[in-house]
Simulated scan of single mutants.
Amino acid sequence: MATITKKKLISEISRRRGLHPNEVRLVVQSFLDCMTEYLSDGDRLEFRDFGVFEVVKRKQKIGRNPKNASVPIIIPERRAVKFTPGKKMKNLIETEEAQGAAL
């Protein structure tokens, strides 16, 4: 399993589409900036077949210090980004998972 960076992604899109990497970089960065802005405003982003990004509220909970389990730590309530994969992505990942298990 590899880690794909923004730079690698830009390079691959540039190669596939025959565009200059600087053009692709501007579009990708603008896309990410818009996503961040919309999510910070509390908006929900839905991309058909890909998935949904939304901001959810995580409740306050009590955690434990692994070095001293007898000391409870209060983890405060917070907002977090949740991603739910779309049908197409979910099916593709599940198919890959099943093929990997069969090997």
Rank of each mutant, 00 (worst) to 15 (best):
G51K: 04
L26F: 03
D43I: 04
G51F: 06
K6P: 13
N68F: 03
N22G: 00
K8E: 05
K57A: 08
T36L: 10
P66G: 07
R25S: 10
L39V: 00
R25T: 09
S11T: 07
L32V: 01
K67E: 06
G51T: 08
T36N: 13
R15M: 01
L19C: 09
L45R: 09
K57H: 12
V56I: 15
F31K: 02
D33Y: 06
E46D: 12
M35P: 13
I62D: 15
I10S: 04
V55H: 02
L32E: 03
Q60G: 10
R58D: 09
F53C: 06
S11E: 11
G63D: 11
V24K: 12
F53E: 06
T5W: 00
V27W: 01
L45Y: 09
V27C: 04
K61W: 12
V55L: 03
E23V: 05
L26Q: 06
V56D: 04
L9C: 05
E54L: 07
G18P: 13
K57N: 14
R48W: 00
I13E: 11
R16W: 05
V28M: 04
V24C: 13
V52H: 06
R17S: 10
S30C: 05
Y38N: 11
M35V: 15
G51A: 08
R17F: 09
